[in-house]
Amino acid sequence: MSVFYFVAFLSIFFALMTIFTKNAVHSVLYLVITFFTFTIHYILLNAQFLAVVNFIVYMGAIMVLFLFVLMLLNLNKDTEPLKSNLIKIIGVIAGLCLVVTIAGSLKLLETSNPVVLKDPGIGLVSNLGKVLFSEFLLPFEISSILLLTAMVGAVLLAKNETKKI
């Protein structure tokens, strides 16, 4: 339990740091750390597969993409557009709406029973693989069409057209 509280503290702390840093690149780096603490949460919850995917896809691929884009954009104070008061007011209203929603949902919150897994193997990779290759075999195979479509499309868009329109 103490591990959970420690990691939860780290998650919240780094999430806040993500918002409050001025430098965009630092902000992304803090976000990476936040995601890393999420990965630890998943492991604590016995969700192996989710932890691995979160680690590889979100932390590894997507956040690095974020970093690259930010560096290419070359953000600094001079290029930042001035935000009008109207936008600030709208932002405050939207934020307060979120607070109201969270307060409302907290009211409805009940303490659940202590987490006792009915099936201790539920988040393990081997079980996921078994479901994927028995019950969900068709969607799994059909996704190959989706990937092939995306691949053909990417090549098509990236290819240089020799004939001018």
Binding site: L138, I142, I165
Partner: peptide
Amino acid sequence: AMLFIGIEIMSVALYILVGIRKR
């Protein structure tokens, strides 16, 4: 799950087809 995959296959191909006039 099939609904989701079907809609995705349908849309992903269209995203590309809509933009085939690159210039």
